Amino acid sequence: MTSSPSRPRKTPRVCFLCGNISRSGGTERVATVIAGALAERGFEVSILSLSHGERAVFPLHPTVRLHSLHMERHSANFSDVRVWSRLRRFLKQNGIDRVVDVDMVLSWYSIPASWGTDATVVAWEHFHLFVNVGDWPQRLRRYAGRRLAARSAAAVVTLTEKDRRQYLRRLPGRAPVFAIPNPVTIAHDKRAPLDARLVLAAGRLVPQKGFDLLLEAWAQLSSRRPGWRLRIVGSGPERAVLESQATRLDIALSVDFAPNTTDMASEFQRASIFVFSSRFEGFGLVLVEAKSFGLPVVSFDCDCGPADIVRHEQDGLLAPKEDVGALASALDRLMSDEQERRQFGQIAFEDSRFALRHILSQWERLLA
């Protein structure tokens, strides 16, 4: 008796490969949102972490399965060969059709592991081509992973059109390159009232985010705008340094530091202006989130991200990269003009370019 042929699946099985989905960063938040939205549309979706990852910090669709290779148990003899072997076994055992690397460093693992399986790899860039962070082994793997992806991935996804062009120019290969921005990840329909004298900033407290530059800018204008406060939401190794800087600049009484929170909606609702001071970014998800609440934005025009999100003189103001004086002037302009704040905020709220439904349709076409 011969067995009947298996019934073909209507949609592919998709695996999002992460370092650790239990982290609370923007990358993990976007991955859980996209994974859950695909599951809602009928995709079979799993999230695989290299280490830990037994639980997601952010809400997850109930049908999305979490897995881990638990490489933290092998830290003493961690090796690329061990990761390749474990990942290949997972792909085969679970019948994975598409692997989405949630960081280009992971392409160093996923592409060799996929050889000899039915899985194809989509490499998702979360920085931009000229940014490479981490310790030297991680930087080396990301460098190699990007080049391997350009040659061998089914597709490369960047967050901005500018970075897409950089990939095509600097790393020409067989893989098609698509620019798909990150979507709004906080579901809501209520605008911030913009009635508080509060400027909000948010992000991990590390040098990349430029909060030291923001404090310098705040020191130039806070005395001219009594009653206004700056609130910085985030955790990280630079907190003590930044608090000391605020004291040294004599602005500690008008600056609040709050720890990282999963309830950013409440923070956006209380603010009247959002300020973004990063030295570099791959995108700037928090800008998209702030605008979705109708907050006017002041941002450095760092490489890749802000200029794709903020429409200068329409829903926010862009200052030259790391120009503290220009950032202070832009903040001062919005702090002193309630009518312009509200006008910019209305236009920001109506910007639908980053709505999840628009972004998801692009991912659906790519993975189908």
Results as ranks from 00 to 15, higher is better:
residue 105 V to L: 14
residue 274 F to K: 07
residue 355 A to W: 05
residue 224 R to D: 15
residue 127 F to N: 15
residue 343 Q to W: 05
residue 271 A to M: 07
residue 6 S to V: 12
residue 273 I to Y: 01
residue 99 V to I: 15
residue 149 A to C: 03
residue 306 P to W: 09
residue 56 A to V: 01
residue 84 W to C: 10
residue 206 V to S: 06
residue 34 I to D: 02
residue 331 L to V: 07
residue 56 A to D: 01
residue 151 R to V: 00
residue 256 D to P: 09
residue 30 V to M: 10
residue 95 G to N: 07
residue 230 L to P: 03
residue 66 L to I: 05
residue 63 T to F: 05
residue 185 T to Q: 05
residue 105 V to A: 14
residue 36 G to K: 08
residue 246 A to T: 03
residue 12 P to T: 04
residue 282 G to P: 14
residue 275 V to K: 02
residue 27 T to F: 05
residue 321 K to F: 00
residue 137 P to T: 04
residue 182 N to M: 10
residue 50 L to Y: 06
residue 8 P to V: 06
residue 82 R to D: 11
residue 79 S to P: 02
residue 105 V to F: 10
residue 345 G to H: 04
residue 239 R to F: 05
residue 348 A to H: 04
residue 124 W to N: 14
residue 205 L to T: 09
residue 44 E to H: 08
residue 123 A to C: 11
residue 353 R to D: 15
residue 22 S to D: 09
residue 53 G to F: 02
residue 4 S to Y: 12
residue 250 D to M: 11
residue 114 S to I: 12
residue 17 L to C: 10
residue 115 W to V: 15
residue 94 N to R: 11
residue 272 S to F: 06
residue 74 H to K: 11
residue 12 P to W: 02
residue 128 H to Q: 09
residue 150 A to Q: 00
residue 46 S to P: 01
residue 178 F to W: 10
residue 98 R to W: 11
residue 166 Q to S: 10
residue 355 A to T: 01
residue 335 M to P: 08
residue 13 R to Q: 04
residue 154 A to D: 06
residue 341 R to P: 03
residue 351 D to K: 06
residue 31 A to I: 12
residue 4 S to M: 14
residue 25 G to D: 14
residue 302 C to K: 05
residue 85 S to R: 15
residue 217 A to D: 12
residue 257 F to D: 06
residue 189 D to G: 15
residue 259 P to G: 13
residue 100 V to T: 09
residue 73 R to Y: 04
residue 206 V to L: 06
residue 8 P to A: 07
residue 3 S to C: 09
residue 359 I to H: 01
residue 23 R to I: 03
